[in-house]
Simulated assay, not measured.
Amino acid sequence: MAKEQMTIRLYPETRKRMDSWLEESNSKNRNEFVEKALRFYMGFLGTDDITEYLSDVLVSTLRGIVADSANRTNCLLFKCAVEQGIMAHTIAAHFSDSMEDRRALRGYVIDEVKRTNGQLNFEDAQDIQRMLPDDTWQD
């Protein structure tokens, strides 16, 4: 199909912005840029075609959001692992409990995590342990 010639009038600042986006849009010239822009905008206006024109943008955006979220989650998990390691080494250095004692402690801690919805820290646990009789978690 042959292209038809058409005259359009743009404000100078619009033309400058368009020229600055030519390379980014992979357009060879202004005509190609305007053609792409019009197709995109018409696809946006027509609800039947909107997914064809926006899906790449949405997928890319969602991937970025998920990647950022995963990075934040990984950082938090790393910090939790460090805290857990500190506690494990602190406890292991000060106690020499039997396997049965450790199983009982695991049950006690599982119940405590459920009760507090995981909102525990080492200092609070230490304060609680100082107030409890030595065999509290062994019941």
Results as ranks from 00 to 15, higher is better:
residue 6 M to C: 05
residue 116 T to W: 02
residue 65 I to K: 11
residue 32 E to I: 03
residue 84 Q to A: 10
residue 72 R to I: 11
residue 98 S to I: 10
residue 134 D to S: 12
residue 24 E to D: 13
residue 77 L to I: 07
residue 129 Q to G: 14
residue 117 N to Q: 10
residue 111 D to E: 15
residue 75 C to I: 13
residue 39 R to V: 13
residue 37 A to N: 02
residue 21 W to C: 12
residue 110 I to E: 08
residue 76 L to F: 01
residue 11 Y to K: 11
residue 101 D to I: 10
residue 107 G to M: 14
residue 74 N to V: 14
residue 130 R to L: 15
residue 124 D to W: 08
residue 77 L to D: 10
residue 93 A to D: 07
residue 128 I to Y: 12
residue 64 G to F: 03
residue 134 D to F: 02
residue 126 Q to D: 06
residue 62 L to N: 03
residue 13 E to F: 05
residue 65 I to V: 05
residue 29 N to D: 12
residue 126 Q to C: 08
residue 65 I to L: 13
residue 11 Y to W: 09
residue 58 L to E: 05
residue 72 R to A: 11
residue 41 Y to V: 06
residue 65 I to N: 10
residue 47 T to S: 10
residue 96 S to N: 14
residue 80 C to M: 11
residue 59 V to D: 08
residue 31 N to S: 15
residue 124 D to L: 04
residue 96 S to W: 12
residue 102 R to Y: 12
residue 105 L to W: 00
residue 11 Y to H: 06
residue 82 V to Y: 05
residue 119 Q to Y: 06
residue 35 E to R: 09
residue 101 D to S: 02
residue 136 T to A: 10
residue 44 F to L: 15
residue 44 F to Q: 11
residue 21 W to K: 08
residue 71 N to V: 07
residue 104 A to I: 03
residue 45 L to W: 00
residue 94 H to W: 13
residue 66 V to W: 00
residue 62 L to Y: 14
residue 43 G to N: 07
residue 12 P to I: 13
residue 111 D to H: 07
residue 60 S to T: 10
residue 33 F to Y: 06
residue 108 Y to A: 11
residue 23 E to P: 02
residue 45 L to G: 03
residue 121 N to Y: 00
residue 68 D to K: 15
residue 134 D to N: 14
residue 131 M to G: 04
residue 119 Q to A: 04
residue 55 S to G: 02
residue 29 N to R: 09
residue 83 E to Y: 00
residue 129 Q to F: 15
residue 49 D to W: 02
residue 8 I to Q: 03
residue 70 A to H: 00
residue 117 N to G: 02
residue 27 S to N: 02
residue 105 L to E: 01
residue 64 G to C: 08
residue 82 V to T: 02
residue 56 D to W: 00
residue 126 Q to P: 04
residue 70 A to S: 10
residue 130 R to V: 11
